[in-house]
Amino acid sequence: MGVLARASAAEIAERLGQAPPLPQHQRLRGPETGLAMVRGRQGGDGAPFNLGEMTVTRCSVRLADGLVGHAYVAGRDKQQAEWAAVLDAALQNPALRPALLEAVIEPLATAQAERAQRDARKAAATRVQFFTMATMR
């Protein structure tokens, strides 16, 4: 779910194009946009406090075979939330799971890890390498 939450609707659409067709689904709730109160901890590791809200879109669906899927994703993209809910349901089906993992989830996860790695490498390039006066001589 974290992978789908971090992917844009366009990215999911692109992966779905390479995947077996998703089963028919019926909307149980939403997709609808609301808020989640984001919490932090006092001093980073103490008691919780309310930091502020963020927009969240949620959706619940039922597939023809009765499997139910739920999704909560950051932002206001209803298409993303609906696909995430359908995928959440379809991934519970052992017959569909391997193909969907391979075609959708894993490539998205890989792309996200690559982006995170690129940021990490840029950050690493700004890590200060201290040297003392002694080593300058």
Binding site: A36, A120, A123
Partner: peptide, 23 residues
């Protein structure tokens, strides 16, 4: 604008110790 949206709930406290640090 935020007053027009329903609140779905509250998050777990974010773990800043596990941050993907850029600075």
């Amino acid at each position: 604008y935020r007053t027009t949206l329903p609140r779905f709930g509250a998050s777990l406290p974010v773990d800043t110790g596990a941050m993907r640090v850029r600075r």
